[in-house]
């Protein structure tokens, strides 16, 4: 095995570009979406009439228990492809753009099912006295969620939500399955062209480490600060 600095030097800018333009964008956008969706699922599971809430729970468990690469393939080639949305593109950039959107939707949905569980734990950790006080003050149900339950559940769920976001970040290389040019697939291309993978894969690993380690520490500090 031989380490070639010139490959590393040429690969780094390309990989960083892919990191910021694809990997990071997908992670941030999909994290925000999944945090919102997860909250909606968690509230829905509690507030919807019995039958509906069972249907929702079933759909969520379907999503949760199937692998992301499979979901990506289904979404891109079984669901979107037949609509023609992917083929009617004017440029490669636009085509890739649309694949990224599909990736964001799949990641957001998948992780929303995990985050719903985090919220559920947060909601269940709230003592019944909080609900009772809201009833005693005649707060409407909606206002009770908005002003009393969600803020408290959010605090309880935040560390776990952060962990899911980091987990999602590390799952982004699955986007290779639908040929989204995220960082690791770029690394693979460069490695293939130079017949040497050690440089690019090392760089990819370092970028992931450098990005996720501080985030994990940040989450831990946040967790400590969130005590009332």
């Amino acid at each position: 095995m031989h380490w070639d600095w010139s490959i590393a030097r040429d690969a780094l800018p390309v990989m960083l570009k892919a990191f910021f333009e694809v990997t990071l964008v997908v992670t941030v956008v999909a994290s925000i979406l999944s945090a919102l969706l997860g909250l909606i699922w968690a509230i829905g599971l509690r507030e919807m009439p019995g039958a509906l809430s069972k249907v929702l729970a079933f759909v969520l468990s379907l999503l949760r228990n199937t692998p992301i690469p499979l979901q990506l393939l289904i979404a891109a080639y079984a669901i979107v492809q037949p609509t023609g949305w992917l083929s009617h593109t004017s440029s490669l950039a636009q085509y890739q753009h649309r694949l990224i959107i599909i990736g964001i939707v799949v990641f957001a949905l998948q992780y929303s099912t995990y985050m719903a569980e985090s919220y559920r734990g947060g909601i269940e950790s709230i003592r019944s006295g909080q609900w009772e006080a809201a009833t005693a003050l005649s707060l409407p149900r909606r206002r009770t969620w908005q002003a009393v339950i969600v803020p408290q559940a959010m605090r309880a769920a935040l560390p776990s939500l952060g962990n899911w976001a980091i987990a999602m970040f590390k799952d982004t290389p699955y986007l290779i399955a639908i040929s989204v040019p995220e960082m690791v697939s770029q690394a693979q291309d460069i490695g293939g062209n130079n017949f040497s993978y050690i440089e690019v894969m090392t760089i990819a690993g370092l970028i992931f480490l450098v990005a996720s380690y501080p985030t994990a520490i940040l989450m831990r500090t946040l967790e400590k600060k969130l005590v009332y």
């Binding site: 003592r127 006295g129 909080q130 009772e132 006080a133 009833t135 005693a136 003050l137 005649s138 409407p140 002003a147 009393v148 803020p151 408290q152 605090r155 009332y228």
Partner: peptide
Amino acid sequence: ALIRRRIGMVFQQFNLFPN
């Protein structure tokens, strides 16, 4: 809800909203 508004309650455990 309309009639309940006339009633208030204080609990053993206070149940203030900590947030």
